[in-house]
Design a protein around this nucleic acid. Structure first.
Lengths: 211, 211
DNA sequence: GTCTATAAACTGATAGAC
DNA sequence: GTCTATCAGTTTATAGAC
């Protein structure tokens, strides 16, 4: 019984399971049985579990960085001047939604994986990400730095991580948090709504003032 | 060879190892050999690995909530009026430092454990924490709500998680982030310095404006 | 209360038939 | 490219001697 898309099925199942419960907590047996493929298929197609983890990330990050770069190019060309903070942040999240749509997944899953890359100490994964996507990361940080010339460099540096933490934490736990919102306040918010709250909050946090 | 403080030794090693690499990634063998106790000691004294995880948390959270409550009581009594946002946030972090000092540990380790409780899907742990410490949590949230009457309730709700994410993420990764700061900018910042950057950032984020 | 020894189950990975 | 069978290593947990 030939499965033409074994690789895709494995990637789909792995992404969902990793995001749901973490890397160490997800066994190859769980992945292959969820994907309805043979246990040996992962090692045959990817070589190892580590290589599978990296492949899952590449499927997200490659289109994301591609969208981010072209969106930044387009905005800078249209503007003929360096971008503002809120414009840069806006582009960051719209690139996130675009790439999630392309992979036919959701931004929440992407954010959960990204959060895991930080919290689970997967050194091989951090090295892989920096090596493959570090350039785009540096570009975006430079844009923010340029947009905030009055902020002390050290304070700016740490605010970047405040921003990263607020975004990754909230979006990666969007569903359970929204469940609390529904239960306690009868407010059901889409992830787009949450991002619309997040963008001004992040902007003001980075600026350190309202204007 | 009688070890009088086997339980304490296990708790110390477990807290350090869990914070460093996560729960699933830390085996009882690693814990017991680090603590210089026998492998069977964990199951003898705590019953199971899950119970050990909860015990590690209790040792942090009990003094923390106790400090937080008494600091809030004292400030409210002294003031005779509801607390301001920045005062409440200030108390939150000073309680964190106080309790970390009492357990003879560091706030970073505490934050890492707290972050893991969210990211690693340890349902038993989340239930345990809510059951044991939910009351203090609710009290603090009410104080913030009262201090920000003009903020839309839904927006306020989500900003709480932006705040939580910024704090937990940054402080739990304090050391690696600071290493980047040292390497790239020759700036070595203590965790107290970082919290001094964090408090105004969080305050302005919650308020949504500079004043 | 501490130890050894071991049970029972799980893990990632691979050899070899088809 | 898919499958079964299996290896070698790990895990948590426990029974029983001391």
């Amino acid at each position: 019984m030939a499965q033409p898309d074994t690789i895709e099925r494995i990637l789909d199942s792995a992404a969902a399971l990793f995001a749901e419960r973490g890397y160490t907590e997800t066994s190859l047996r769980t992945i292959t049985s969820t994907a309805n493929v043979n246990l040996a298929a992962v090692n045959y197609h990817f070589g190892s579990k580590k290589a599978l983890i990296q492949a899952v990330f590449a499927r997200y990050l490659t289109p994301f960085c591609s969208y981010l770069n072209s969106n930044l190019n387009e905005a800078e060309a249209r503007q003929g001047a360096p971008l503002d903070v809120d414009e840069a942040i806006e582009i960051l999240f719209s690139s996130l939604f675009q790439s999630a749509r392309e992979v036919d997944s959701n931004p929440e899953q992407f954010m959960r994986l990204l959060g895991l890359a930080y919290t689970q100490s997967q050194d091989h994964l951090r090295h892989f990400i920096i090596k493959e996507y570090g350039e785009t990361y540096a570009r975006f940080m430079d844009i923010l730095r340029l947009a905030l010339p009055d902020v002390d460099p050290t304070v700016f540096f740490w605010r970047l991580y405040f921003m990263l933490g607020a975004s990754v934490f909230t979006l990666s736990s969007y569903k359970p948090i929204n469940n609390i919102s529904v239960a306690d306040f009868d407010q059901d918010r889409s992830i787009e709504d949450v991002v619309s709250f997040l963008i001004p909050s992040i902007t003001i946090l980075l600026r350190g003032s309202a204007e």
